[in-house]
Design a binder for these strands. Structure first.
Lengths: 185, 185
DNA sequence: TTTAATGTACCGTTCGTTCGGTATAGTGTC
DNA sequence: GACACTATACCGAACGAACGGTACATTAAA
């Protein structure tokens, strides 16, 4: 079995339990591999496992979010496609964001640079769509931050309230909110 | 020294490192107390320390957020007062939210009910202000969720980008955004 | 003299990690 | 075909360190 086989499983674990909570015992149980076998695939240990998961997530962004934003259609439908992708990634608000979870854990320092870069490319891609629609660059930048704020915030709230509806409402309203003309309140 | 002396310090630690990252060794170093002394003040150990911090935070909400929302002035100024309070609590976006941090850590299950209740009372207090201003109850409820989403989301983004400006912008724009009439977009 | 507060040494557990080794599947040599 | 050699995939057992927590003697204070 190539090591890629186990990466979705690893992502699951890090997403559900955080970096600290995803212990090797749990990882071993979930993958069905002994601890020593894990070190065969990931000689760098737990940190390398997390790096592999981040690389997988970065690939997922490149394969799903960026094409959704850069594909055909007007700005609104592109943003709607992005929201659809996030809806599947976060399972309708039932799963927390891996990046936020790692960012809040004690492993923040290890992966902060990588996480920041993911956010920055994401924000830039959203802003690009809004600029294409005719919004001024600085406003487009602000709106892209608003998008990240709404998605991340609604995931936090959904987790806190144990209710995914805030996330679903945000996904539904966000594209139009981002596209509204510059002079509207 | 009464045990209340050490609670701000404990809150600092849990806020910065999370529940997992706030080890007894760190707590001992930060408070200047040996383990025996810590267990003298908090016989329930680390969990009781976290409970004390949560109770402190709940008291802070009762003393600062709820009075700000229920005091004199119109709805807009009340919400602005609330934002000012949050600005000091989160040090202008330089500190993450304790509730979110614990929620994302492996101790989620221990404190989930308590955290949910804090969020619910907060949301209810905001919605009350908006209902007083004439907004329909269901919209007021939605807007209160929007407030929590914006604040929590901007804290996540500020942490990710290592830049507090998204949080500061949200605090500045949020009150007017919440107060806008029902028929505006 | 009682009680609160603290230092020291220790407990059992779990952490991430490593060691030594097994089973299998080639691969080249004679 | 028989043999030695190597690389890959996997595992159980154990390691040292750190974890949260406890026992107990001692000091400081009332």
């Amino acid at each position: 079995m190539p090591r890629e086989t186990y990466i979705p499983c690893l992502m699951d674990l890090f997403q559900q339990h955080g970096y600290d909570g995803a212990t090797l015992a749990r990882i071993s149980a979930a993958t069905g591999l002994g601890k020593a076998s894990l070190y065969h695939y990931f000689p760098g240990g737990k940190e390398e496992m997390a790096v592999a998961v981040f690389e997988y997530l970065e690939g997922w962004m490149s394969d799903h979010i960026l094409p959704a934003l850069r594909g055909e259609g007007d700005g609104l439908t592109r943003l709607q496609r992005m929201c659809t992708q996030f809806n599947t990634l976060y399972e309708g608000g039932h799963r927390p964001c891996l990046l936020a979870i790692v960012l809040m854990g004690s492993a923040r320092g290890l992966f902060h640079d990588r996480i920041r870069q993911v956010f920055q490319t994401w924000l830039a891609a959203i802003a690009e769509v809004l600029v294409e629609m005719g919004l001024p660059a600085d406003l487009a930048q602000q709106r892209s931050e608003d998008a990240a704020i709404s998605i991340q915030g609604s995931l936090v709230l959904a987790l806190a309230l144990d209710d995914p509806s805030p996330f679903q409402r945000v996904l539904q309203e966000l594209p139009a909110e981002l596209c509204r003309p510059a002079d509207a309140s």
